[in-house]
Each structure stands twice: as C-alpha cells, then as structure tokens.
Amino acid sequence: MPRTLTINGQEVSAGNEQTILEAARDANIRIPTLCHLDGLTDVGACRMCLVEVVGSNKLLPACTTRVQEGMEVHTDTERLRAYRRQIIELLFAERNHVCAVCVANGHCELQNLGIAVGMDHVRYDYLFPRLGVDLSHERFGMDHNRCILCTRCVRACDQLEGAHTIDVLGRGARSLIVRDMNIPWGESTTCTSCGKCVMACPTGALFKQGSTVAEMVHDVEKLAFLRAARERKVWNV
C-alpha cells in the first residue's frame, strides 16, 4: 500500500518499505549522503542525511528511516544545513585532505559536499595524524590520509563480492580500514582483486595504481547496476 507524506511541503507518495531517502529521490528532492551507496545496505553512519520529521524530537537519518503515512519531513532547514557543514568540516580536519595533490581531486564526493554545504574554510584545528599509504597490491592503492571511514568499501567487499577482506580495526578516531588481519593488501589471500571497493570509495582513499592527481574517477554506479542485475535480473540499463 503506498504511503503519502510531505517532504519540504511537497506532497509525495512512496512505497511502504521505502526509506525517506528513496522517496525524496523519486520526487527529485536531493538529500546529501556520504555513507549511503546504491547497491549496499545502509548503516546510518555519516549523519549527512539527517532530516527533521514533525513530531519527532530526534533528527532521523533519511537513509535508514522508513516512510510513514502522513509524515511531514523537512530536509533542508537552516539547522540541518549548519549541522551538515559542521560534519563536513570535522572530516576535513580529521585526516590529511590535500585536494591539490589528491588522485580524486575534482571527482570526490567529500570535496563536492564541501562545496554543497558552503564550506569556505574549516573552523576546527586540523589534526594531522600520521597515516600510511598501502601500495602493496599490484593494481590498487589505499591512502589512509583520505579515508573518511564510511565503510562503503567494507560493505561492497562483503555484500557484493562476498569476500569480506576488508574491515575496520580499532575504534574512535584510531579506526583504520584493514585487510584480513591487518596485513598489507598485496598479501591478502581473500582479496579477489575485483576492484569493487575502489569503485565504492567516495574519496581518494582507494585508487587504481598509476593514477595521478585528479585522475581517479570512481565507477560508483556500477555497483548499483551489479546489485540490480543479480537481484532483479536487469542486465541492460
């Protein structure tokens, strides 16, 4: 049974199992996302997609919240805009994002969100952690300096490739994306070198070897295509 709700005052109808994010997208309303990726399950981690729902005293992640009949959703209030900018600034300050020398410069979701939220500078102290780059794999590389810990690579590897080579080590700001039991990527025996993690990565953290500044373009759409192809047997788009 379809549900009727309003998003930013606009009346929208949606399937009852749809999330607010999906319903909004069908209605051409854009909600910023970072940890969401079509084709992967949602984890509600980045908090960029938080929306206000009338009657709820908490902000709700659009990517994991199901629509309800009569819901009144606001996706772009001043308060939300301020929070989103703060979140993006926190990410830029957390690790070493030097767009000027980054493989993803110009094709980076984080960089694009910086523009979308109107970030002209970062208010917080840059933390400058000392992090490594793993170039041990013959075709791919991982630069922890650019990783925002969205776990899209973890989920792509687990859910689409079924390898579960990648996971998160440690907690808090010390979290680190690792392969197998924290070994160099090139030594992983479970990695199939399929490259799905690289496709999934929103930033310059995962890249094809040999890419130089601004050359790394991620094929994120391919993952949604793969999922649709497998689950719904849709092979042509």
Binding site: N96, V98, A100, V101, H121, V122, Y126, F128, P129
Partner: peptide, 20 residues
Amino acid sequence: VSFGDCAVTGNVTAMRNPLD
C-alpha cells in the same frame, strides 16, 4: 583575505606536520 588553499587550510605547506 586568506588567498588560496595554503592560507585557508595549510595545504601542501602543512604536509610536513604529521612528521612531527
């Protein structure tokens, strides 16, 4: 006016910071 990434973020000039 902070003019350019180095003034705004530290940018390439600050890449030595993690080396302590």
